[in-house]
Each structure stands twice: as C-alpha cells, then as structure tokens.
Nucleic acid binder design. Structure first.
Length: 425
DNA sequence: TCTGGGGTCCTAGGACCC
DNA sequence: TCTGGGGTCCTAGGACCC
C-alpha cells in the first residue's frame, strides 16, 4: 500500500501560516515576474480564477473581490516543505518526496493498522507541526493513491482521508474520478480518450493493456491500466537520483534591448545553475544558452537565439562555464530585438568524482574546486550574491519583478515574524 | 502594456556495428 | 528466382508531471 500526502493549496497555505488575517480570504500566488497565477486558495478557486491564467487577465476579478495576490516566495515554500516532509517521515521508514507539496509513504507492514485513523493522525500532526493543512489518500498503487487523495480533498464528508482497501471501494473511487483527473492523463490524452467515448477512470480501467499500448504512449499507457486495476507498476523512489539536466532561466522584468544586460543575465543564470550543479556534486559537459523575444507578442516577430557548447572537459567551475558562453554570445547577439527572456541549461551531467581526464585539457584542479567551495560557503552564510562574478552586474535593471513578496519568515533573521503584545498595540 | 520555471520518460527512425 | 538476425547509439518530437 502507498499513502499520498498532499498539502492543500500549498503555496497559499504557506502564506496563511504567518498571516492569519488571510484565513477565509481569497488569495492567489503569482509565478516569477508576477506573470501568471500558479496557486489559489479555495475561495479564489470559487471565484472562477483559473490556474495558469495571466495575472492581467484576472486583474478585474481580483480587485473586485478583494483577492490578495502574492509574488511567489520559494524560499518560504521550500522551507515549509522541508518541515512537512520531516514531520511525515516519522510515520513510515519509506518516504518519497515527490514534489514540493506531495509525498508518498510506503505502507508495508501496516496491515494491522486502521489506515483511516492513522491518516487522521498524520494530518493532525502535520497541521500542528507546520500549520499546513493536508489530505491523505491510501491505496495499493501510486496511481490509485493519487485518486484516493483526490477524493479525500474533493468530497467534504471524507474529512481529508480516503483509503482504497477493497474491491468495492476501488470501483466506487474510479467511477467518481473523471478521465482528466487521472495521474498521467494530460490535455492531449484527455481529448483522445474523450473521442473514444471514455469519461471516467472506471471505463478507462476496463480497456485492455494492448489498447492502451497503442493509444497512450506505449509502455506508459500499459502501466497506467494495470495501476488503475490495482497492479502496482511504479515503485517508491526513496533516494532521489541526481538531476540529468539543470536549468536556470528567467523572463526579464522589462523589455531588454542592449547587449550588456543580456550578457549580465546569462552570467547570473550560469552562476545559479553552477551552484545547483555543485550542490549535487556533478560536472557538466554541455552548456546551452538562449535568449529570445516575447513569444506572445502579436506586433513583433519571435526571435530566438540559442547555442550549445560542448566543453573540452566537464566542469562545475562557474568561470569555465561562463567564459565560452560569453565569447559565443558576443558573436550571436542581434541588435534591434525586444528581448524578453534568457537562460542556460547544463547537460550531460556526470559525477564530479569520476571525470575522465583528457590528453590536452586539465580537469578542475584543486584551486578551482577550493575557490568554488569558498564561494558557495560565503553565499550560504552571508546570503546569495555575497560573492559573484563581476560579469553578473550590480544594478541588474533587467531583473525579474517580484513586487508582492511576503517575508522569508523562516530563513532570514531580518524577516522574522514580530509578535506584538497588547502594550505594543 | 501585461503570459513561469524546471524537470522526466518514451518512441520512432536513422545510422551504424558484427 | 532466391538477400538474416541481433544489437547500440543518437536525435527529434511528443507526452506528461508539479
């Protein structure tokens, strides 16, 4: 059996933990650059504010209804996530942190437990330790656990918990889940399945694995049918594999036209990506950079420039990643374009401890490794950007907008919550 | 005016090997 | 007239997830 625990409206709930005035008030969280709506409280959902919608399209609705909008505060959400996962790991030795707000627990050996009561205890403990409300779904496969979680959340009488333990419950659950609510069915497959006359998960579960193989992406579809029928095909992944790609990309806070700004942005993004790279103790063989104009513009043409550079020897040294990119960038930059976004991707990552040496080029030497390690330590201790490449710039007029960000209550001494007594008021 | 960022896995087809 | 069997690697593209 698998349990899936999922924080309710996670980002919105994180904001509420430190600002109780937001309780029962509609709130939305905006994407980077305050562009799109990426999380909503139940009240905001009820107003018809759509997930992923551009903020400006929803602005009227938001102002009219007193909806509070926040820039995303990933420092806060990441730390709250850690707290939630730490709390949950007390309940089972087998933990898979699936995303910032979700975690699977292995329920092997819990046969003699009343799983519904157990789930309620988990919910209460997470709420007490972190302030985050969550729901629990338990079932014999991960896909069914996802479905159980959905029903725990959707049907109020379930009190935030749903357990699929017997055949009758499984059939009942499947019948009450629409096709597009199934884990692994996205927009395209939804359309396709609809065309076959399929509406709910029960109908899909009765299709043959061969049919699924032909119509739902081969092995993926086959697995999905089995999972719906209670045959577990997707294991718990308790140890996160190192990333195979690392990216750092951002839209600019305003239209950028000049070479220097984009050069700075690329240097800045390379520094961020290299930091992530070193954190997982990897080195990169390929660095790709790109910059482009606004793909949504109806007035200006979409222009995208990108280039992949194969490094002579894999590295995690920010300078060795940045230098060739800057050199190539100078050759590729085009004047007269209204640029919107830039980014870098690191690819073909391998372990830093197993770098193949080269007859002509030296791998990262001791000085290089030592320098990067000092940079990382200083930036951890004294804050991001304490040490940086000069080429990342200082004023950064191109920087992403975040005009509605709440304080980093749990990770920054200067932004701690201040509790006022009656006297203060 | 204004539209995010970061990932994964799978398949098909081509080129090539013995 | 008649032309095998088994495999790898790479890339582009398509789908999905949060």
């Amino acid at each position: 059996m698998f349990a899936l625990i999922d924080g309710n409206n996670f980002y919105a709930s994180c904001e509420r933990v430190f600002n109780p005035k937001l309780e029962n008030v509609p709130i939305v969280i905006l994407s980077n650059n305050d562009g799109c709506i990426i999380a909503r409280s139940n009240e905001a959902k009820a107003l018809g504010i759509k997930m992923g919608a551009p903020y400006y399209e929803m602005k009227d609705l938001i102002l009219k209804n007193g909806v509070k909008a926040f820039s995303s505060n990933y420092t806060l959400y990441g730390d709250m996530s850690d707290r939630m996962m730490t709390t949950l790991s007390q309940f089972s030795p087998d933990v898979e942190v699936y995303s910032i707000d979700e975690c699977f627990l292995g329920m092997e050996g819990f046969n003699n437990f009343n799983l519904t009561d157990f789930s309620q205890i988990m919910r209460q403990t997470v709420r007490q330790h972190t302030g985050i409300p969550c729901c629990v779904g338990i079932a014999p496969t991960k896909t069914l656990a996802k479905i159980a979680n959905r029903l725990a959340k959707k049907v109020p009488s379930n009190n935030g918990v749903f357990v699929i333990q017997d055949e009758a419950t499984r059939l009942h659950a499947l019948e009450n889940i629409m096709i597009d609510d199934i884990w692994g069915i996205g927009r395209k497959y939804f359309k396709k399945l609809e065309a076959f006359g399929l509406q709910n998960a029960l109908q899909l579960s009765r299709m043959s694995p061969e049919w699924a193989k032909a119509h739902l992406g081969g092995i993926v579809g086959t697995r999905l049918i089995h999972e719906l029928n209670g045959l577990s095909c997707i294991d718990l992944e308790m140890v996160a594999d190192p990333k195979k790609n690392i990216a750092a990309t951002r839209a600019f806070g305003k239209v950028v036209t000049n070479e220097k700004d984009i050069s700075e942005a690329l240097s800045f993004h390379i520094s961020r990506a290299a930091e992530k790279l070193r954190k997982q103790n990897s080195v990169a063989k390929i660095v790709t950079f790109f910059f482009h104009s606004n793909p949504f513009s109806k007035v200006y043409p979409f222009i995208r420039i990108s280039k992949s550079i194969v490094l002579p020897i894999p590295t995690s040294d920010t300078r060795k990643l940045n230098d060739p990119v800057q050199a190539m960038f100078k050759k590729l930059f085009q004047n007269g374009v209204r640029y919107h976004k830039a980014g870098v991707m690191l690819q073909e990552l391998t372990s830093a401890s197993a770098v193949q040496s080269d007859l002509f080029y030296q791998s990262d030497n001791e000085q290089s490794t030592a320098l990067m390690s000092v940079v990382d330590k200083l930036n951890t201790q004294y804050g991001r950007g304490t040490m940086q490449l000069g080429s990342s710039g200082l004023t950064r007029s191109w920087m992403t907008q975040a005009n509605r960000k709440s304080p980093s209550y749990t990770t920054n001494w200067k932004q701690l919550l201040v509790v006022k007594t009656d006297k203060d008021i």
